[in-house]
Structures are given as C-alpha cells and as structure tokens.
Write a protein that binds this DNA or RNA. Structure first.
Ligand SMILES: [Mn+2]
Ligand SMILES: [Mn+2]
Length: 315
DNA sequence: GGCACTG
DNA sequence: CAGTGCCAACGCTAG
DNA sequence: CTAGCG
C-alpha cells in the first residue's frame, strides 16, 4: 500500500508495512495510546511525522541522531539511545569515534524511512547534532535554550528571547526563535561551519552572560537550580557541545497535548499573543500551510563568527 | 519496541 | 514458553 | 576530584 494512502487514514490500527521507494518499513502497534490524557496514539504520531516530513527533514539531514525513546508512551519509562545496532541495513549510519576510542554507530537523519523508523521505536522527539557528518567538529548553528524557572511566564521567556536577539543583532548576527514545545523558547543562530565547538561555545557563553548581567531580574546563567530565583529565565548555552543536541524544529514533544517545537516569527514573540500549547500535532500543518516556515533561513544563512567574537570581546 | 538471553 | 535485561555518554563548571 | 545539571 502506498505510504500516503495508508498513513492518511483517519484511524490507524494494528500493524502496517509501507513501501518507500524500494524500502519496506514496518509500523507497529498503531493504536497504542501514547498520550493517555489526550487519547493520541502512536498512529497519530506517525501520521504527523509523515505529513510534516517535507518540513522537518531538512533540519535532520546529514546529522547524527540521538534517540529518546518512549516505547510505552509519554507516561511510560523512557531511555536514550545513541548506538543503534539493529537498524535495517539500508538506513544511513555513521560510526563516530568517542573520546576514549570506542565507536558508536549513530543513525543519520534526512530520510523519511529513518524518520518513520525512529518514530516507530517510540522516539517521539527528534534530536539531531549541531554539526553534520561531513564536518562533525564544526557546528552549523548555535542554540540558546531559554528555560523558565518555576512560576516564570511565557511572556517573560519572550522578553528574554528578544534581549538575546537584540544583543546578537548588535554584534551582526541574525537569529531565529521557536517554541521548545514545553514552556521555553529556543533561539538559533545559523552559522557557516567554520569554528569548532569550543569557539562556538565560548561565544555563546559571552552572549548569555551579557544578557543575564544586563537583565538580572529576568535572566540568569546560574546552573545550580537552588540559586535561580523564582521567575527568572535560565539562559542555557551549555548545549553547544559535540554530542549534545536540542529538539529539532517541528519535533513532537512527549508532553500533554502532543505539542510541537514550532518556529515563530519575531513579530509573534513581540506580540505575545501565542503560547506553546497552541502548536500541536493537530495544528502545526495548518499553520505551515498558511505561514510557511519561519526557520527557513537557518539552513541558508552561513553567518561567520569572526566579527561577532571581536565585537562581543570589546563590550 | 524489539532483540538476546535465561530457565 | 514467559520473563528479564538492555538500550547514554559526556561536557561543563561551581565548589 | 566530585556533584549537579541537562
Ligand atoms: Mn536547558
Ligand atoms: Mn529547554
């Protein structure tokens, strides 16, 4: 059966084998409940990823994938998986040598077959590396993970996101925001992959620290939970390292409502009329068809860090 | 979720 | 046959 | 070095 016809059925039940080009992909337990409070099933998850594939796959292409698996749904136990030893032969893998010399076989993103294979394993979220397999030591984006503390509002997250954007802009860099799908915002800075993780991370630390220093009531870079004040937003820059990841644009989250990490226009961050709960596996496709993808420049803009490092150094 | 292994 | 184990690694930094 | 964080 064609993948499209099979997956677009309103109700998905039991198991299904779909053909993608020459590949056969097994999709199992389609009626298993993954979101008990909402009634969404594993079939609903697979249908969403099939329909959004054209938009999400560019952000996964040629990147090692970290799987965070929820085989029994969002309230069941979960585990991380890097080393994938049982993947079908025809899915792309890359063998990456770790610090201690042992090798880990990562799945490589970008193919629909891989996306549906990982979703079928219960990998609700997509977690790509910040670098691509042809240049694993040089990230092609920097991320700022804005995490609201207990009691901090999404309004305040928006406020801090704009501070980050403005500072980046003042050193000559464009940036892009998406909802995390939980309560925060992720700010991405697209890069030409020419600086290594250490240089990128040091730059990110300087930006985050400056935002916290200039806005101490609402932003902090303090990692110790107990020392973050209520209402502050934690500007987490420490994800900018090899082997770490952040959830991809258009990735589903294992959260109530089956929310999706959704790219925003900066004007939406300014207007504060939207919230993370507005974007779910049921609403995001409609939004994309109306507004397009605000993150498109993230894969096109090859920004260079040299001048920006110089400028932040003199501030 | 699926596979290897145990009893 | 049913039941169980397994599937992460690591980078950072305050103390 | 370890503990806590993600
Ligand atoms: Mn974080
Ligand atoms: Mn976060």
């Amino acid at each position: 059966m064609s993948a499209a016809k099979a997956l677009e059925a309103r109700e998905l039940k039991g198991d299904l084998t779909i053909k993608l080009g020459r590949r056969l992909i097994q999709l199992t337990h389609l009626d298993k409940i993954y979101w008990p409070d909402d009634g969404y099933t594993k079939g609903d998850l697979l249908r969403y990823y099939f329909k959004v594939s054209k938009y999400i796959l560019p952000y996964l292409r040629d990147r090692p994938l970290i799987l965070k698996r929820y085989p029994d749904g969002i309230e069941g136990e979960s585990f991380h998986q890097h080393d994938v030893d049982e993947a079908p032969e025809d899915l792309r893998l890359v063998s990456i040598e770790m610090g201690d010399g042992h090798k880990v076989d990562y799945l490589v993103g970008g193919d629909l077959a891989t996306l549906l294979y990982t979703a079928n394993l219960g990998a609700i979220e997509c977690h790509p590396w910040h670098s691509r397999i042809d240049n694993l030591d040089r990230p092609d984006w920097i991320v700022f993970d804005l995490d609201p503390g207990e009691g901090a509002t999404f309004d305040r997250v928006c406020e801090v996101a704009l501070k980050v954007r403005d500072l980046l802009e003042s050193v000559g860099l464009a940036s892009y925001a998406k909802t995390s799908g939980s309560r925060g915002i992720h700010v991405f800075v697209p890069l030409r992959a020419e600086h290594d993780y250490d240089q990128a991370a040091r730059f990110a630390a300087r930006i985050a620290s400056a935002v916290a220093r200039e806005n101490p009531a609402i932003a902090t870079v303090e990692r110790t939970l107990q020392r973050r004040r209520a209402g502050q937003i934690y500007v987490d820059h420490l994800q900018n390292a090899r082997g770490k990841s952040i959830v991809a644009p258009y990735s589903v989250r294992p959260r109530p409502g089956a929310t999706v990490s959704t790219p925003l226009e900066w004007q939406e961050v300014i207007d504060r009329k939207i919230g993370p709960q507005d974007f779910t596996i049921e609403t995001v496709l409609q939004r994309i068809s109306e507004k397009g993808d605000p993150f498109k420049p993230v894969l096109r803009q090859k920004q260079r860090l040299r001048q920006a490092i110089k400028k932040i150094g003199s501030m």
